Structures are given as C-alpha cells and as structure tokens.
Simulated assay, not measured.
Amino acid sequence: MAVSRRGLLLGSALTATGAAVGATAHLIPSLFGPDRLPLDGGYAPAGNADDWTPRGQIRTIWHVPTDQPLVALTFDDGPMPDWTPRVLDALDKADAPATFFMVGQNLRRHADLVKGRLGRHEVGNHTWEHKDLAKRDEASVRNQLVRCHEAIREVTGQTATLLRPPWGHLGGSTLTVADTMDYDVVMWSYRMPEDRFRTNPAGIVDDVAACVRPGTIMLAHDTGPADRLVTIDNLGEIIKAVRGKGMRLVTVSELLAAGTTASPGSGSKK
C-alpha cells in the first residue's frame, strides 16, 4: 500500500506528539490543576465505578416519548428570594405542578421560602454550588451531588431521583456518580427564549403554545438575570396556553412514568 510523504510526516508528527504527552503525563495534574483537560485520566472520564450498581447505566432525558398529552415545567437555580415565591404563587393560583432543580446551598440558605409550599411539586438535584460538573473528577462530583441530595431530603422531605447538571454540562464522572445514586439525568427540549422577547414579553406565550407537544420538558429559572422575568411575569398565561393546546402539566417523574417504549432502532428507551 502506497503511503504519501504527507501521510508519513503526519504519522510521525502524531507519534512524536503522543510520545511527548506520555512522557509528561505525570505533569498534567500540576500543570492544569483541578480544571485540567481530560487527558491521562483528567477530570471528566468515568473511570471505574466504586461498585457494580443494579442498573449499570444512566438515563439521560431531553423529552419523553408518550402518547398522552403531558408536558413538564421545570425551574432551575433556586430557591432565591427574588422570584421563587412569585413562581410558587403563580403555580398555586393555576393549580399547576412543576419540578424544581434546586441548588443545595440556596436551599439551605432559603429553606423558609419553600417550606410547606412543595406539596404538588418535585425537587431535583442541581448540585450544591451550581458547579460545572464537566470540569470535575468523580470525588468532586460526588461531593456536589451528595451535599445537595441531603439538603433536599432534610429541608423538603423528598428523596431526589433526578439530576440536572448546570448548563447541561456533564462528563463521564457525572454519569458514574449519578448511576451509583440511582439518578436519571434530565435535560430539556424547550428552553424559555426570554432574550427573544425582551421588547415583546407577551410574545413568549405564543412561542410556548407553538412549540410544546406531548413529552416536552420546558426549562425556566426562578432566579438570574432580569430577562428571565419575561417568563415569570407571564407564567400564568403560559400555563393557560399550554392547557389551551390540550396539554396537562405534570412533574418530570410523572412524565417519565407515562413514557412509551420506543420501537426497535429508534434509539430511545422507556
């Protein structure tokens, strides 16, 4: 088989690069610190789980295939004094459930905001400090998730079964820890596009109505920059619009329970 001169040069360069990386691999932790690149067993690889778990896998969910007209509304980053009470008030008025992915330290600090107010709602894990899990090794991920898990249990009385990684970022280390904690990882299929409706806040209601369909997981926030108020200020109307399409709001766990098994080859699981 003929090999071009360019191919030989490229191969030599790659070999030399690999050798250089191998020779200096022991220096990577000191060179890059805790946020080092995922080379030579850096922060993100799953590595070996400490124990064999019953599942040995993790579900990562963007939407739920279902034949029922169900959607889930989720809120990230709280609880915080600015908007969380307003969100809870709007949900109470509409008799609508939601899933709150709470930051553990916020929950500890502002436990009074949610005590007695979560009866119809579900609480999921959003880490202890809203850290980027894709930049953390297994021990650090476990610390972030366990501390938040315990805060949720102690403050709300719920046992979290859902994880939403901040910004949707995750590496293998996150999946390993999530599996040992029997979590499902929940992303989203519709993110409230507040930035598009800063000058036309009511427009977000029509956008939600146009986009939701059975199995949608909607992402909103109950704290953060001011443009997120576009959702908060119109939450009642958003709920009306969703129901106007014949949809029923449920928690993420209820939506998962209503999921249908996909046909072979579709790439989806129940």
Rank of each mutant, 00 (worst) to 15 (best):
R243G: 10
T231Y: 05
L256E: 13
D195V: 12
A209S: 12
R248E: 14
V242P: 04
V252G: 05
M192F: 11
T216L: 00
G215F: 03
E194M: 13
D233T: 11
K245M: 01
P193H: 12
G244M: 09
G215K: 07
R191M: 10
T223Y: 11
I238C: 08
G203F: 12
L256I: 14
T223R: 15
R243S: 00
N234F: 05
I238Y: 07
D222T: 00
I217L: 13
I204E: 04
E194R: 01
G246D: 08
P214A: 03
G244W: 04
G224V: 07
K240G: 03
A209G: 06
M192G: 14
A220P: 10
L235E: 05
D222W: 01
H221C: 01
T261D: 14
D227F: 08
V212C: 06
M218L: 13
T231H: 03
G244A: 09
L229W: 12
L249R: 02
C211P: 01
A226V: 13
F197K: 04
N234I: 02
T216E: 04
P214D: 00
D227C: 03
A202K: 13
V212T: 07
H221M: 06
D206H: 04
D207G: 09
G236M: 03
L235Y: 04
L249I: 11
G244P: 06
G246T: 05
T261K: 15
G259F: 06
G203V: 03
R228V: 01
A241Q: 09
R198A: 09
V252W: 01
G203T: 05
V250N: 00
G259A: 15
I217F: 08
A257V: 06
V252C: 07
L219P: 00
V212H: 00
R243D: 01
L255M: 07
T216H: 03
R228Q: 12
A257N: 09
A220N: 15
V208T: 07
V208L: 09
T199E: 14
A220W: 09
M247V: 05
T199I: 13
I204Q: 00
M192K: 03
I239F: 07
R198C: 07
T260C: 12
T260G: 11
R213T: 08
P193C: 11
P201N: 06
A226P: 13
V212R: 03
T216G: 05
S253V: 08
L235D: 04
G244V: 10
R198I: 12
P225D: 13
T223P: 02
V230N: 02
D233F: 08
I204M: 09
D195K: 15
G215E: 03
A210L: 12
R196I: 06
L256F: 13
G224T: 08
